[in-house]
């Protein structure tokens, strides 16, 4: 529950569009992990919330559909893809989506 507050506090510092992106990304990952969004914390890795390689590919598809963006991600080399789309944690994924939305909807 304390995490919820932290998330809210972080989110409140952001412009509303970005707060919205964070919430939507969290909702997408939570649905994939079969968790409540409130159980998914920014510092969580995908492994920690039970998302495997297939789940990751599905999550990226859902993110592309939700935000109408192209995510440059190749499952063969997540490390090389990390520059454009860092999948280390929920927070890095959110940041990457925010950046792609900015670039691709400019």
């Amino acid at each position: 529950m304390q995490m919820d507050k932290t998330l809210d506090a972080d989110a409140s510092m952001l412009p509303s569009a970005h707060r919205d992106i964070g919430a939507r990304v969290t909702a997408i990952l939570a649905e994939q992990a079969m968790l409540e969004p409130s159980d998914v914390e920014p510092q969580h890795s995908l492994a920690e919330i039970g998302i495997d390689s297939l789940g990751l590919v599905e999550s990226i598809f859902a993110i592309e559909e939700a935000f109408d963006i192209q995510v440059p991600f190749n499952a063969n080399d997540p490390a090389a893809s990390a520059e454009a789309f860092d999948i280390s944690t929920v927070a890095t994924i959110t940041a990457a989506v925010e950046s792609l939305v900015r670039q691709q909807h400019a």
């Binding site: 590919v57 990226i60 598809f61 991600f73 190749n74 499952a75 063969n76 080399d77 090389a80």
Partner: peptide, 20 residues
């Protein structure tokens, strides 16, 4: 394409720089 295991450059089996 959907599975994200495809290379856009070429097929380079066993090479460290392979990407699908």
């Amino acid at each position: 394409e959907g599975l994200r295991v495809m290379s856009r450059r070429g097929c380079r089996p066993f090479s460290r720089d392979r990407d699908g």
